[in-house]
């Protein structure tokens, strides 16, 4: 998480938060794993992180695009794939990373 903050990978806009991370992930994704374990989802919203999201990366860089911060809806872009997810905890965690 600290490295994410230092590198300034997160760009915030008025409408959305684009988490742009060229993260060479070996093993679980730190951002996603932390978000899942630490942040509390908003009432009424169930995190829907797809199971393959962690294993698919396999060391490839990837981009996480949060298209709707209010619901935690976003997309993981990796290789030639696009994996949608909904996870407000990630947004919360990224907000914390932004400081």
């Amino acid at each position: 998480m600290p490295s994410v903050t230092r590198r300034g990978f997160i760009t915030r806009t008025s409408l959305s938060v684009a988490a742009i991370g060229a993260l060479s992930a070996l093993g679980p994704l730190p951002v996603l794993a932390d978000a899942q374990s630490q942040a509390q989802p908003r009432p009424g919203l169930k995190p829907k992180l797809p199971v393959p999201a962690v294993s698919l990366v396999g060391g490839q860089p990837f981009v996480v695009y949060i298209s709707d911060p209010s619901t935690g809806a976003g997309t993981i872009l990796v290789g030639e794939q696009s994996i949608p997810f909904t996870n407000p905890a990630i947004v919360s965690s990224l907000h914390q990373a932004i400081g």
Binding site: A22, P61, T75, G79, E80, Q81, S82
Partner: peptide, 19 residues
């Protein structure tokens, strides 16, 4: 084009996501 492009210092841009 792929949906996302990362501009990197000192190396070729990195394209990610579906076409």
């Amino acid at each position: 084009r792929q949906q996302s492009r990362m501009i990197n210092m000192g190396s070729a841009p990195l394209d990610m996501g579906p076409w």
